[in-house]
Amino acid sequence: MERVPILKLGDILIVSIQIDLQDMSVLALQEDLSERVVATGARGVIIDITAVEIVDSFIGRMLATIAAISRMLDAETIVVGMRPAVAITLVELGLSLGGVRTALNLEKGVALLNQIENQTPTATW
C-alpha cells in the first residue's frame, strides 16, 4: 500500500494526492493527517486533488471526515483543484461534501486560509 506524503509549510499542512487511491491508503491518510495536525499545531490543511481522476463516495466521505476531525483540532480544511468532470460526477452521485471548503487551486486555497484567519473577531478593516 502506498502512503500519501504530508508536507508542512509554515502552519499549513499540504497533501497532494498523486496516486490512484485505494481504500487502505485513504484510511491511512485520514489517520496520518489528524496525528500531524496535533503534532504540528497546524491551523490549516490543504488537500490538492488536481491529479485525482475520480472521487467516489468512499473518497468523498474521507474528505468530509478529515474536514470534521481537523475542525475539532482547530484546523480548517480546504480541498483544492477538483476537476470539472469529478465535480459533475459527485453532484450526480448525490454526494455533497458538506462542510468542506473548496478552492480552485493551491494558491487560492492558501489565500482562503489567510482570509479565514483574518476574520477573527479582533481583526479590523
Binding site: V80, M82, A87, I88, L90, V91, S96, T102, L112
Partner: peptide, 12 residues
C-alpha cells in the same frame, strides 16, 4: 442547478 453545485465543489 447541478452546474452551480458542481462549481461550488470546485471552489467557485
Amino acid at each position: 442547478l447541478k452546474t452551480v453545485v458542481a462549481a461550488r465543489l470546485m471552489g467557485a
